[in-house]
Nucleic acid binder design. Sequence first.
DNA 1: TTGTATGCGTTATCAA
DNA 2: TTGATAACGCATACAA
Lengths: 336, 336
Amino acid sequence: MKITSEEIARLANVSRSTVSRVINNYPNVPEPTRQKVMGVIEKYGYKPNAFARVLAGKSNMEIALCISNDNSGDGNRWKGMESPYFMRLIAELITQSKAYGYMISVLVISTEADYEEIENRFLNREICGGVFVGFEFQMERINAIAEKGFNMVVIDPDDSLKQADNVKAIYSENERGAFLAVEYLLKKKYARIGHIRGDNRLSARERLEGYCKAMEAAGYRREELPVEYGGFNREYAYRAAVRLMQEHQVDAIFAADDITAIAATRAAADLNKRVPEDVGIMGCDYVSLYDDLGIHLTTVEISVREIAKIAVRAVLDIEKEKQIVCRAAIRVGLTA
Amino acid sequence: MKITSEEIARLANVSRSTVSRVINNYPNVPEPTRQKVMGVIEKYGYKPNAFARVLAGKSNMEIALCISNDNSGDGNRWKGMESPYFMRLIAELITQSKAYGYMISVLVISTEADYEEIENRFLNREICGGVFVGFEFQMERINAIAEKGFNMVVIDPDDSLKQADNVKAIYSENERGAFLAVEYLLKKKYARIGHIRGDNRLSARERLEGYCKAMEAAGYRREELPVEYGGFNREYAYRAAVRLMQEHQVDAIFAADDITAIAATRAAADLNKRVPEDVGIMGCDYVSLYDDLGIHLTTVEISVREIAKIAVRAVLDIEKEKQIVCRAAIRVGLTA
DNA sequence: TTGTATGCGTTATCAA
DNA sequence: TTGATAACGCATACAA
């Protein structure tokens, strides 16, 4: 059926052990022998059985991507598995890990049992690392698993994070990104800049802080800044944008994310304001989707590819830092 | 470290074989014994080692989702891994297969070697089935693997498909969907309906055919129908829409897909035409994305969830049909 | 109905 | 430097 190391050994006139040593690049096998064995391996297209290796003690070259499922069910589909962010992240992680010879398996975490599932896989050596991304993780569970000696990476953790030893965290430069965005608007000579903030999670608070700092640096007083609640929700964001433009008379809006920015763009259109002439709109957390619709937001981008690359390197312990920050950059579009 | 069937056997005063029989629901184990063993299993939270089972002859409860990589690099990102269609499909497949206790592993197919990888996994019992989706598959390779006795499902294959015995095909009701769409426009009293067609792949040809048939049924002559090439590309589609509206004076457009429809909507706006009053626009192949932007296309929907559900059932051979067609339905929005 | 023995394909240990 | 041999954790044919 399928050629095994046994066969290879026979054909190369060596023992299974030697074949194994060649496969695993052990140092104690002389070059001629290695050549001979490799020749037979190539000739017959032999590929070692991954499952057997794992059973025999090796770790599987597979990384679990653990996504927290969103059960809130508020009809806002920009969450959970279908979120374009997660989707791009999955795609990039698959690509990046493949470059190191690793596979990605996607696990959706929704119940307590799922954490046991993960731990089980670690114990069985089915996976050699876990990358966590999403909102509502139980950090204690993650820490507990990590403390048994397994590598975990958490992307954009909330500040509640107490990192166990084997846990690495990847942060996005939210505050600085927001600061850059507002700075950009100020340079464009917008004078009255409002902010549509997200909800209470860390990223939203950091972006708000960045906005405030940039405005303060420009001489504005923090207490008087026009900030409205958008909650990363397109309906709330739309109304927030209307309030900012009508009640606060802003001439520019820094939105907590791109969904919010798109909603603000609609609001501007409905109020007969031209973008960017009458009102400048700045997004955040670039989502590639809108380009394809011919909508080119000026926004803050933190490369998903970069995050994926770092995540893979971190979980494989190539990257040793426990706290890694991904840089934000302005992506110039047509809305500001 | 981890409890094994050996331990369970000892604790339950039976042999490993009996534990195995209980786990695998063999009939020849009396209820009291089963209860006793199950009790110990529950108590210690024993989970059989999946890899060991596979090595011992069982098939892994895992389905490979094989996605053809798009190397065309024409800058149109609505293809390959990042396509929202694939992304939703992945999400739905994960959900649906989980319901049957199966996992999904995603494989991106770009080179010849990838087919060998798939075959290798089948031979090692790492996967028990393959679901193929994308454009440029080498059906001969798929058939060759299937002929060795493995289950394969191809979603929306091109007509070049010669199905081997273990290959099942899932088709979308493209022609009927297009027919319904045009019928819908006719009922809405649009009189001059044009079509922006896709490229030369089967789905595009079928949609064109559905459009033609519906128009013929309404008394139009096929040769005189206003059809322009859009190629599923937003730039081409935009220009096609302009031609239809300016040169052909259409009052409604049936677009080959939703990307095309969105481009047509932009074109209408740029020509100062109101949608749907001055011109009706009908999409096809519903992509959920646009709702979140406040754009509500009237379009043709073929449920991705339904496709995923059927794909899982087909690959597990619960669904026995070799050719399965997924129904299309009109999704009413604001553009027609 | 149950237990024993063997095999799955690999790695690791120990001798040679 | 190499080769036997014993794990790894489970399923199964066969015997009892």
